[in-house]
């Protein structure tokens, strides 16, 4: 009996560090988040990933599990982000024909718009005396998460703060573009879709597909191009400005 207790004790100290524990918790929270999202009738201001992250944070806080231990255990899952980022090249290739039909507005809009998407936020935060870590975490705020994570690591930002920034940006871009398009009397799905993808990454793209397939296609194009363009210019500019 005492031997059994001893083994139980060893198990409780080992279990939190195992990959399966971290992966079970992550997957369970993910599906619970999706279920909850359905129950709440899919609110646009609260993407399922936010619900799932809150549930997972609650689980981690309740269980005798350290965040660093969890990060270590879940490494196998986060590694998959690498091949998943590479996989984004496939939809980018599939969207290329849209560039051919409307290349001039796209080529002329993308650089200033993508630079300003980062520039406004970094400029405002800098004026408000935010430290360099915060600036580096906010800079890729309009870039789709897997690419943005790579960028912020290059710049020396915090991945966690970036994730929060991505959520707020996505929700805010979706709201402001919907309202601005209504006030400005803009009905062109290509314009609205491109703006949604460029500013609101994946969250904006989901909204664009609600508007229509054309808006969705231009949103995924805007999202991919912004990701690629920002991944190229932002680290270079950052090193240049010091």
């Amino acid at each position: 009996m005492s031997e059994l207790l001893l083994r139980l004790e060893i198990l409780t100290s080992e279990l939190p560090q195992r990959p399966e524990t971290a992966i079970v918790l992550t997957l369970a929270a993910y599906f619970a988040g999706l279920r909850l999202f359905g129950w709440l009738r899919s609110p646009a201001w609260c993407p399922p990933i936010l619900l799932a992250a809150c549930l997972l944070a609650g689980l981690l806080a309740l269980l005798p599990l350290d965040y660093t231990e969890y990060r270590h255990g879940v490494g196998w899952l986060t590694w998959l982000l690498g091949p998943a980022t590479v996989a984004l090249g496939v939809p980018l290739y599939q969207q290329v024909h849209h560039i051919r039909t409307l290349w001039k507005p796209i080529v002329l809009t993308l650089p200033p718009a993508a630079i300003l998407a980062a520039g406004y936020a970094v400029g405002i935060a800098w004026l408000l005396d935010a430290p360099p870590t915060v600036l580096a975490s906010l800079a890729p705020k309009s870039v789709t998460a897997p690419i943005a994570m790579g960028i912020t690591q290059e710049l020396g930002g915090s991945v966690s703060l970036l994730m929060g920034a991505l959520l707020i940006t996505g929700v805010m871009a979706t709201l402001s573009i919907t309202l601005l398009a209504r006030w400005g009397n803009i009905h062109d799905q290509r314009v609205i879709g491109f703006a949604l993808g460029l500013n609101g990454h994946a969250i904006g793209t989901v909204r664009a597909f609600d508007i229509g397939p054309t808006a969705g296609a231009f949103a995924s194009l805007g999202m991919s191009l912004t990701g690629v363009f920002t991944a190229l210019w932002l680290p270079l500019m950052w090193h240049f400005l010091g």
Partner: peptide, 16 residues
Amino acid sequence: MLALLIMPGVVGIFFQ
């Protein structure tokens, strides 16, 4: 699966 894959990073904000 991307949303699932970035979850561990998102959760960090609550602990940092």
